[in-house]
């Protein structure tokens, strides 16, 4: 049974169309990732599904309740971890959970027990009675995760759960997410722009760009649809047309002066391919990632900020205006 169902879900802020008609169906127990660059509409979509943002049009049903008509029932059945930390730093970890338990109407009789369970799950039992302002970034995230799950919601929404954490902590937070989802059979809907991490954690992903879902599948299927491995060759002027015509090559393009060819079983064909290119400086062979999927679909790189791609701010502004954002 689908625990989340949306039909043409749309949100407009003034003239800006943040989300343009999203259709989704997410099953109980899934870990679903909503991927896309900054400003693609991920946070707005999640905001509508947990009733923080009112949809302009379209319909969203979460845990059997309409997000516009019965927001309180929806809220009771979802847990939320926001992009920015929202812990009460003047309270201890345990007190944060106690506050949450009361707000969500968890009966006094089981409150203490559930809180202890969650604290144990995220390994914060030892620090439970310290003020959360003394916690590290990773600990705060874990406590927020515990808080989001405390009232045993049907769906847990995580908006960029690992943003701003170091790689090691990120890996641990993902591990907690996976563990808890499995244990409680909670549906997890998350947004991230760390494609590699989404690939490992999510059962299914939807790629969102400019307010629309442009692809929806398992990470593996998406990657397979690219048609093989990626061979990146840095050379003076690779004969693109010639290479494109080869039977084993599915696509070729230039990325920042480097030729990237997608092909099946690259390790077998590399020896045939390289003699065709003169002045090879370097060769790299890799398995494609969701980032490559995104690039293929949009022609753009999802990774990090626009500035990191060597784009000047003038170009950035121009592109954003073009996109109507």
């Amino acid at each position: 049974m689908a625990v989340i169902e949306t039909r043409s879900l749309t949100k407009t802020f003034g003239k800006i169309q943040a989300v343009r008609g999203i259709d989704l169906s997410i099953e109980q127990g899934e870990i679903f990732g909503l991927l896309g660059p900054n400003g693609a509409g991920k946070t707005t979509t999640i905001g509508m599904l947990c009733t923080i943002i009112r949809p302009t049009s379209g319909r969203g049903v979460v845990a059997g309740f309409d997000v516009a008509a019965s927001p309180t029932q929806v809220r009771r059945n979802v847990g939320i971890v926001f992009q920015d930390p929202t812990l009460d730093t003047i309270l201890t970890g345990r007190e944060n959970l106690q506050l949450h338990a009361r707000l969500y109407g968890i009966p006094a009789g089981v409150r203490g027990l559930w809180i202890d369970e969650m604290l144990a799950l995220v390994d914060l039992k030892d620090r439970a009675d310290d003020l959360t302002r003394t916690y590290s970034g990773g600990m705060r995230r874990r406590l927020e995760l515990a808080r989001g799950l405390l009232h045993r919601p049907a769906v847990l929404f995580l908006d960029e759960p690992t943003l701003g954490l170091d790689p090691q902590t990120r890996a641990r937070v993902w591990e907690y997410i996976r563990q808890t989802a499995r244990k409680e059979n909670t549906t997890v809907v998350l947004t991230t722009h760390y494609m590699e991490e989404a690939q490992q954690v999510c059962g299914r992903v939807g790629i969102i760009d400019q307010g629309k879902i442009i692809a929806l599948d398992t990470p593996q299927n998406m990657i397979d649809s690219l048609g093989g491995d990626i061979v990146a060759v840095s050379a003076e002027s690779p004969p693109l047309d010639r290479i494109r015509s080869l039977s084993y090559v599915s696509s070729v393009r230039m990325v920042d002066g480097v030729m990237e060819a997608t092909m099946k079983s690259a390790h077998l064909h590399l020896a045939q391919l390289l003699p065709l290119i003169s002045g090879v400086k370097s060769v790299e062979m890799r398995k494609p990632t969701l980032n490559d999927v995104f690039m293929k679909l949009t022609g753009r790189d999802i990774r990090e900020d626009d500035a990191a791609r060597g784009e000047s701010w003038v170009e950035t502004v121009a592109r954003h205006q073009q996109r109507g954002r």
Binding site: C50, T51, I52, T72, Q73, R75, R76, I80, F82, D84, P85, T86, L87, D88, T89, L99, H100, L103, Y104, G105, R147
Partner: peptide, 14 residues
């Protein structure tokens, strides 16, 4: 400003 209220405001409480 510190987003302390945010988590409270999304609770199923009027």
């Amino acid at each position: 400003k510190l987003d302390v209220l945010k988590a409270v405001l999304v609770a199923p409480v009027a």
